[in-house]
Protein backbone atom coordinates (compact mmCIF):
# COMPACT_ATOMS: atom_id res chain seq x y z
CA UNK A 1 0.00 0.00 0.00
CA UNK A 2 1.51 3.36 -0.96
CA UNK A 3 1.28 6.37 1.30
CA UNK A 4 -0.91 8.15 -1.25
CA UNK A 5 -3.54 5.45 -1.67
CA UNK A 6 -3.62 4.83 2.07
CA UNK A 7 -4.04 8.52 2.85
CA UNK A 8 -7.03 8.77 0.56
CA UNK A 9 -8.77 6.13 2.63
CA UNK A 10 -8.13 7.67 6.01
CA UNK A 11 -11.36 8.23 7.86
CA UNK A 12 -12.71 10.47 9.12
CA UNK A 13 -10.81 13.46 7.72
CA UNK A 14 -9.49 16.05 10.16
CA UNK A 15 -10.17 13.75 13.05
CA UNK A 16 -9.43 15.49 16.33
CA UNK A 17 -8.20 13.07 18.99
CA UNK A 18 -10.77 13.17 21.80
CA UNK A 19 -8.35 11.79 24.36
CA UNK A 20 -5.60 14.34 23.99
CA UNK A 21 -3.36 15.24 26.92
CA UNK A 22 -1.49 18.45 26.21
CA UNK A 23 0.97 17.73 29.02
CA UNK A 24 1.97 14.34 27.58
CA UNK A 25 4.46 13.56 24.83
CA UNK A 26 3.73 15.20 21.52
CA UNK A 27 3.06 12.45 18.97
CA UNK A 28 6.04 11.72 16.80
CA UNK A 29 4.01 10.59 13.78
CA UNK A 30 1.25 12.39 11.95
CA UNK A 31 -1.78 11.01 10.11
CA UNK A 32 -0.90 9.43 6.80
CA UNK A 33 2.70 8.82 7.85
CA UNK A 34 4.22 5.47 7.04
CA UNK A 35 5.57 3.63 10.06
CA UNK A 36 7.17 0.31 10.82
CA UNK A 37 6.21 -1.68 13.90
CA UNK A 38 9.23 -2.61 15.98
CA UNK A 39 10.29 -6.18 15.46
CA UNK A 40 10.58 -6.82 19.17
CA UNK A 41 9.69 -9.56 21.62
CA UNK A 42 9.92 -8.03 25.11
CA UNK A 43 8.76 -10.17 28.01
CA UNK A 44 5.68 -9.11 29.95
CA UNK A 45 2.29 -7.81 28.94
CA UNK A 46 2.31 -6.47 25.40
CA UNK A 47 -0.64 -5.17 23.38
CA UNK A 48 1.09 -5.28 19.98
CA UNK A 49 0.07 -8.44 18.12
CA UNK A 50 2.77 -10.59 16.58
CA UNK A 51 1.17 -10.44 13.17
CA UNK A 52 2.11 -6.76 12.74
CA UNK A 53 5.56 -6.76 14.32
CA UNK A 54 8.15 -5.74 11.76
CA UNK A 55 5.41 -4.73 9.30
CA UNK A 56 4.88 -1.40 7.59
CA UNK A 57 1.59 0.47 7.82
CA UNK A 58 0.16 3.97 7.68
CA UNK A 59 -1.04 6.10 10.59
CA UNK A 60 -4.84 6.18 10.21
CA UNK A 61 -5.40 8.44 13.19
CA UNK A 62 -3.98 9.47 16.52
CA UNK A 63 -6.35 8.28 19.23
CA UNK A 64 -4.85 10.45 21.97
CA UNK A 65 -2.69 9.72 25.01
CA UNK A 66 -3.02 6.65 27.18
CA UNK A 67 -1.22 5.08 30.13
CA UNK A 68 1.22 2.42 28.98
CA UNK A 69 -0.40 -1.02 29.44
CA UNK A 70 3.03 -2.67 29.70
CA UNK A 71 3.44 -0.66 32.93
CA UNK A 72 -0.16 -0.81 34.15
CA UNK A 73 -0.07 -4.60 33.98
CA UNK A 74 2.58 -4.60 36.73
CA UNK A 75 0.81 -2.22 39.09
CA UNK A 76 2.75 0.85 37.98
CA UNK A 77 0.98 4.04 36.96
CA UNK A 78 1.72 3.86 33.24
CA UNK A 79 3.27 7.32 32.99
CA UNK A 80 4.42 9.01 30.93
CA UNK A 81 1.29 8.52 28.88
CA UNK A 82 1.96 7.41 25.36
CA UNK A 83 0.44 8.58 22.11
CA UNK A 84 -1.77 5.80 20.77
CA UNK A 85 -2.23 5.38 17.03
CA UNK A 86 -4.44 3.39 14.77
CA UNK A 87 -2.17 2.00 12.08
CA UNK A 88 -3.58 0.61 8.85
CA UNK A 89 -1.99 -2.39 7.15
CA UNK A 90 -2.78 -4.07 3.86
CA UNK A 91 -3.64 -7.71 4.60
CA UNK A 92 -1.52 -8.62 1.59
CA UNK A 93 1.48 -7.13 3.45
CA UNK A 94 0.80 -9.30 6.49
CA UNK A 95 -0.10 -12.69 5.12
CA UNK A 96 0.95 -14.97 2.33
CA UNK A 97 -1.36 -14.65 -0.64
CA UNK A 98 -0.96 -18.36 -1.33
CA UNK A 99 -4.29 -19.14 0.31
CA UNK A 100 -6.06 -15.83 0.23
CA UNK A 101 -9.11 -15.43 2.40
CA UNK A 102 -8.87 -11.73 1.71
CA UNK A 103 -8.92 -9.36 -1.24
CA UNK A 104 -5.85 -7.43 -2.31
CA UNK A 105 -7.60 -4.21 -1.31
CA UNK A 106 -8.50 -5.45 2.19
CA UNK A 107 -6.96 -3.72 5.19
CA UNK A 108 -6.79 -3.92 8.97
CA UNK A 109 -6.44 -1.17 11.56
CA UNK A 110 -4.56 -2.00 14.75
CA UNK A 111 -4.09 0.22 17.82
CA UNK A 112 -0.39 0.61 18.58
CA UNK A 113 1.40 2.68 21.23
CA UNK A 114 4.10 5.02 20.02
CA UNK A 115 6.96 3.14 21.66
CA UNK A 116 6.32 0.30 19.23
CA UNK A 117 6.60 2.46 16.11
CA UNK A 118 9.56 3.70 14.15
CA UNK A 119 9.71 5.86 11.04
CA UNK A 120 9.77 4.01 7.77
CA UNK A 121 11.89 5.14 4.86
CA UNK A 122 11.06 3.91 1.42
CA UNK A 123 14.47 3.79 -0.22
CA UNK A 124 12.84 3.87 -3.61
CA UNK A 125 11.50 7.34 -2.79
CA UNK A 126 13.11 10.65 -1.97
CA UNK A 127 15.09 9.55 1.03
CA UNK A 128 16.74 12.90 1.70
CA UNK A 129 13.49 14.85 1.69
CA UNK A 130 11.72 12.24 3.79
CA UNK A 131 14.57 12.14 6.24
CA UNK A 132 14.73 15.93 6.57
CA UNK A 133 10.98 16.06 7.15
CA UNK A 134 11.13 13.49 9.91
CA UNK A 135 14.09 15.27 11.49
CA UNK A 136 12.00 18.46 11.56
CA UNK A 137 9.12 16.61 13.15
CA UNK A 138 11.36 15.16 15.82
CA UNK A 139 12.78 18.61 16.50
CA UNK A 140 9.24 20.01 16.73
CA UNK A 141 8.23 17.26 19.08
CA UNK A 142 11.20 17.98 21.34
CA UNK A 143 10.40 21.69 21.50
Amino acid sequence: MTEETASERLTPPNFAPPYWDASALKPRFSMGKRVRVRRGAPPGHVRTPWYVRGRVGVVERICGHFADPQELAYRRDGTPKQPLYRVRFALSDLWSAAEPGFGLEDTIDVEIYEGWLEPYFDYGGDFAAESAKIEREIADAAR
Binding site: Y19, R47, T48, P49, C63, F66, P69, L84, R86, L91, F102, G103, E105, D106, T107, I108, D109, V110, E111, I112, Y113
Partner: peptide, 12 residues
Protein backbone atom coordinates in the same frame (compact mmCIF):
# COMPACT_ATOMS: atom_id res chain seq x y z
CA UNK B 1 -16.14 -3.57 -1.66
CA UNK B 2 -13.02 -3.42 0.49
CA UNK B 3 -13.00 -5.26 3.81
CA UNK B 4 -11.69 -3.09 6.63
CA UNK B 5 -10.95 -5.12 9.77
CA UNK B 6 -10.51 -3.39 13.15
CA UNK B 7 -8.49 -5.15 15.83
CA UNK B 8 -9.35 -3.73 19.30
CA UNK B 9 -5.86 -4.18 20.68
CA UNK B 10 -5.82 -1.29 23.13
CA UNK B 11 -8.06 1.45 24.53
CA UNK B 12 -10.69 1.99 21.82
Amino acid sequence: VRVQVHDSTADM
